Amino acid sequence: MIQLTKVISKKELKQFILLPYSIHKNHEEWLPPLISDEWKVFDKTKNHSFEHCDTIMYLAKQNNKVVGRIMGIINHMYNNGNNEKNVRFYGLECEDDAAIYDTLINAIEIWGKQKGMNTIIGPLGFSDKDPQGFLIDGFKEPMTVMVTNHSYKYMINHLERNGFKKKLDIFQYSAKIPEKTEAIYTRIAKRATRSGYKILEFKKSKHVRPYVNEVFKLINETYKNIYGFAPLSDIESKEFSERFLPLLKPQYIKVVLDTSDKIVAFVVAMPDISVGFKKAKGKLFPFGFIHILKAFKKTNQLNLLLGCIDENIRNSGLVALMNIALLNSARENNLTVLDSHLILEENTKMRAVMERMEHKIYKKYRIFEKVLD
């Protein structure tokens, strides 16, 4: 018999956080996230996103053993801004067992209906910046840090059996970094420079910090039409930057200023350290951080993470300006492969940037939806 328990105590939250590490212990391509980072996501005392969301977390137990987990999220800020009544499911993990799976997903459906929601969507977290979607293609390809959602094929089968349909697909590209910049990009970038735009490059993280607040303001303005995104408050922006800035190399952060020194565009990337994360097995100490540091030095891949341009000046050559600077930094450090991170199927402009290079789509993810009766 399967017992469903709400996560209330710290002990139960720890069980919730640690369950994937046993579910995926024999999963060759799964990339364990840092346990310390998972606490920052799921502990409401450490994640201010809980303040504007209704949430619930369940553990499924069988014979006193934790065998599954799931989280339900109602993001009121997103729902109100988009005139929707969606409950999100997130963090769904269990073995290939229909009874366990159904118990978990049905619990979120019931909870969502009790809260007045008419649709369930997912996997989707507090924001589109959390891992999203179930993997539908590319199961034998390696994972990259910041995606960390290498689900089993059976997750899709059980979801479809429960009446879920495709909401949208998300692509992940791998592209060869060209040995030199194409002349057309150089011409476009020069036009941007002549128009007064200038690019900032960094050598130390402390030089990046003064720009963090303005970067997140730009994110809130330009990401508003991206599916699943809800504006980040000042405290959420601070939490997000504190989680990831220590992992970033400042030379792969590029910021564009206009003639009044206002931030109008930026791009953030990082060398792929997935091998180090895998060896760390979710723990920075005592030796995990050493594996991660070594991975920085050995990788040949650069992973895109974030980027945007002020919507009012999208055709001003800033993409070329940033791409040239970013790829130059990659070449200087002998990086030869560029990973796109996650790109929505409908984001044709960003997909076109990747498809101008020698590329392949090596992973596809899907967000599902179901109307609640």
Rank of each mutant, 00 (worst) to 15 (best):
Lys166Ser: 05
Phe171Lys: 14
Asp128Gly: 07
Lys153His: 13
Met155Trp: 10
Glu201Arg: 12
Ser195Asp: 06
Ala230Asn: 01
Arg187Trp: 04
Phe171Asn: 12
Glu141Cys: 14
Asn149Phe: 02
Phe229Asp: 04
Lys198Pro: 01
Lys140Val: 12
His150Trp: 03
Phe139Gly: 05
Pro178Asp: 14
Glu160Met: 13
Tyr197Ile: 04
Pro210His: 05
Lys176Cys: 01
Thr186His: 05
Tyr211Lys: 00
Lys165Thr: 09
Ile226Gln: 07
Phe229Gly: 02
Leu124Gly: 02
Lys198Thr: 12
Phe202Gln: 02
Arg209Glu: 00
Pro231Glu: 08
Leu218Asp: 01
Gly196Thr: 04
Glu221Gln: 15
Leu200Cys: 07
Gly196Trp: 08
Asp234Met: 06
Lys198Asn: 12
Asn213Ser: 10
Phe164Gln: 08
Lys238Ala: 09
Glu160Arg: 09
Ile156Thr: 11
Met155Ser: 09
Ser174Gln: 09
Arg191Phe: 03
Asp137Leu: 14
Ala192Met: 03
Pro210Val: 03
Met155Thr: 12
Thr144Trp: 00
Lys129Tyr: 08
Gly125Asp: 04
Leu124Cys: 03
Gly163Ala: 09
Met155Pro: 00
Pro142Phe: 05
Met146Val: 10
Arg161Phe: 07
Phe134Tyr: 13
Gly133Ser: 04
Lys165Ser: 06
Arg191Cys: 02
Tyr185Gly: 10
Ser205Tyr: 07
Tyr152Cys: 10
Ser237Asn: 11
Thr144Leu: 08
Ser205Pro: 13
Pro131Asp: 03
Ser205Trp: 08
His150Cys: 15
Asp128Cys: 13
Pro210Lys: 03
Ile226Cys: 04
Val215Met: 11
Val145Lys: 01
Arg209Val: 00
Ile177Asp: 00
His150Gly: 13
Asn162Ala: 03
Leu135Tyr: 06
Met143Ser: 15
Thr193Lys: 15
Ala183Gln: 12
Glu179Asp: 15
Phe139Trp: 12
Met143Lys: 05
Lys153Cys: 11
Ile219Tyr: 01
Lys203Ser: 14
Ser233Gln: 10
Met146Gln: 04
Tyr197Trp: 11
Asp128Ala: 10
Ile156Pro: 01
Lys153Arg: 14
Met155Ile: 09
Lys176Tyr: 01
Ile177Ala: 12
Lys165Ile: 05
Ile188Gln: 15
Leu124Ser: 08
Thr181Gly: 03
Gly138Phe: 01
Arg191Leu: 04
Ser127Gln: 03
Glu179Cys: 08
Val145Pro: 00
Arg209Leu: 00
Lys198Leu: 01
Ile156Gln: 09
Ile226Glu: 03
Val145Leu: 10
Ser205Phe: 11
Ile188Ala: 05
Lys198Met: 06
Lys206Cys: 06
Phe134Asp: 05
Ile188Asn: 12
Glu214Trp: 07
Phe139Glu: 05
Ile199Tyr: 09
Glu214Thr: 07
Leu232Gln: 03
